[in-house]
Simulated scan of single mutants.
Amino acid sequence: MTNKTIDDFQTPGQALKYFLSSYGWTQDDLAHILTISLKHTNEIIKDKKPISIDIARLLEKVFDWKAHEWIMLDTSYQLSKKIEEAKEQLVERQVEVYKYLPINELLKKGWLKPYENIEGLNKQLHSFWNVPKNKQLDFSILESNNINIEYRKSDAYKDPTNEINARAWYQMALNHSQKLNVAPYDKNGLEELLSKLHTYTIMKSGISKFLNDLGKVGVKFVFLSHLSKTYLDGAAFASETGPVITLTGRYDRVDNFWFNMAHEASHVLLHLPKKNHKNMVFMDDSTSSITSKKEKEANEMAEKILLQDEILEFFDEYIGYITEEKVTEFSLSKKIHPSIVVGILAFNEKVSYSTLHRFKESVRDKIPNKYRAEKV
């Protein structure tokens, strides 16, 4: 007789080992008593086989516990085993996924929602990459993804994980762009809009107005922070529903916002085909050197849009003593934000970047929520 209950054991095998020790029996003895094979007895004791109702009834005849107690202990063990197996599968899946996606960062940013099992993870990954539920998700898609990314990038991209993150960032931007409705793409309309872009920079609610007008000429805009190691300021890409411009707000400055906007819009105008080809993506790090022909062309157009030649010509005679009053004078006469004026002068080493602090102004809070891929 024993005072032990099923709560004292985690598995039927543990209980049987205890009983055999208490009775001084061997596995062979138990097999003989139960009239089953030694192999079957050994498998039950090692928890390799579940306890059937028939075996539970036999054990009731041999030991102190009722048949239903043996069934309850076995059921509890089988459930816990399935939970552990599910955890192991999830861990294995996460190890696989982490080679291609910064899952933890995506969770922190809210790009993915918390999940409890492998089914929850797979469901979100299928949704994120727009893969049908009945189709297996091949992670090689993250390496090819049928897109051709052209980078204006720093040496940081020597790390292959950076490109993986950049592709994930692109996919998040693409997903949000599909939620936006704009007019059909009008190349001539975009060209006209860019010719007066500088005037929006000094308008009240100028950013909101420009983004609205950008949609009227068929260009979608998405605001999305960059992932770690990507060092992105913005991107321009074609999609099935038209061209998309995405900015990260990496530097929360007026001059940076408008220059990157002008640069990416120039890519749309100059380098994205009139007919949509979803495999063309331009990604830009504004702090890196420019080497490709297309990047130089986009930069030159952006400089023209933001009146760089006029700014440099006007301030040429004031080099060394450029005052706030002169910056304001030019800004008002040409209808362009003073921060952009100083930013161009600083980039061309005519003034110190510290001068920008006088005209510092945040832009993040001026971007309407509908353009934000991340909700605030």
Results as ranks from 00 to 15, higher is better:
364 R>G: 02
316 D>L: 13
139 F>W: 11
326 K>N: 10
358 R>A: 14
230 T>Q: 01
54 D>Y: 09
14 Q>S: 12
76 S>V: 03
46 K>I: 11
276 N>W: 09
173 A>D: 00
351 V>F: 04
348 N>M: 04
122 N>T: 11
31 A>N: 08
248 T>A: 09
94 Q>A: 07
55 I>H: 02
1 M>Y: 01
83 I>Q: 14
29 D>R: 15
366 K>M: 15
290 I>K: 10
111 W>A: 02
223 F>R: 00
99 K>P: 00
129 W>V: 09
158 K>Y: 05
249 G>C: 13
254 V>A: 15
28 D>C: 15
175 N>P: 01
298 A>T: 11
117 N>C: 08
138 D>Y: 03
241 T>H: 02
102 P>G: 10
316 D>S: 15
124 Q>M: 14
174 L>V: 06
293 K>L: 10
18 Y>T: 04
191 E>F: 09
129 W>M: 13
5 T>I: 05
3 N>C: 05
149 I>C: 07
340 I>K: 03
51 I>F: 04
98 Y>T: 14
1 M>H: 05
125 L>T: 02
316 D>K: 14
6 I>K: 06
252 D>E: 15
240 E>K: 15
115 Y>H: 05
36 I>M: 14
248 T>H: 06
144 S>C: 11
109 K>L: 15
350 K>N: 01
14 Q>P: 02
319 I>M: 07
350 K>G: 00
121 L>C: 06
20 L>I: 07
261 M>Y: 06
305 I>E: 05
265 A>Q: 03
191 E>L: 12
147 I>Q: 01
56 A>T: 01
135 K>Y: 09
341 V>H: 00
348 N>H: 12
234 G>D: 01
220 K>H: 08
94 Q>S: 09
309 D>R: 14
66 K>W: 01
230 T>E: 02
134 N>L: 12
141 I>Y: 04
296 K>V: 13
350 K>Y: 00
